[in-house]
């Protein structure tokens, strides 16, 4: 599991609308908000870092959001071993073998 906290800023007049919209997003909870400044702290839970990144990018595009950036990121219980290509692609690359020499270096 990955968990990040994100600062979101909206126009003050859109705050409630934005909160409703954020709470409908998968894995997202709005925890704190400040009606005086339009600022909110939300958490986003996602299986992988890639999902976290994609989620934040989605949030940035939601209506009336001026700003959304990450404050903290917890990944201590993320068991995934990351590589930029999918496991399937990696297996194809490495012919299913794992070892110190990535196969593609020798192709």
């Amino acid at each position: 599991m990955n968990l990040s906290t994100i600062l979101v800023i909206s126009k003050k007049e859109s705050l409630h609308e934005v909160i409703d919209c954020l709470n409908k997003q998968t894995g997202v909870d709005v925890h704190h908000s400040d009606p005086d400044t339009g600022r909110m702290i939300i958490t986003q839970e996602a299986e992988t870092i890639d999902d976290e990144v994609a989620g934040l990018k989605r949030l940035k595009k939601l209506p009336n959001i001026i700003y959304a950036e990450m404050v903290s990121h917890y990944f201590g219980e993320d068991k995934k071993n990351y590589a930029a290509v999918s496991q399937q692609d990696l297996d194809a690359l490495d012919n299913g073998t794992s070892g110190p020499v990535p196969e593609y270096l020798n192709d």
Binding site: L3, L7, D34, I41, E45
Partner: peptide, 25 residues
């Protein structure tokens, strides 16, 4: 991770972020 631990972690992380960003809590 248990649900309780997960929720606890979320609310703690959010509180910590709110403190850092100067939101009133």
């Amino acid at each position: 991770m248990s649900q309780t631990r997960r929720e606890f972690l979320k609310s703690s992380a959010a509180a910590s972020a709110a403190v850092a960003m100067g939101l009133p809590i």
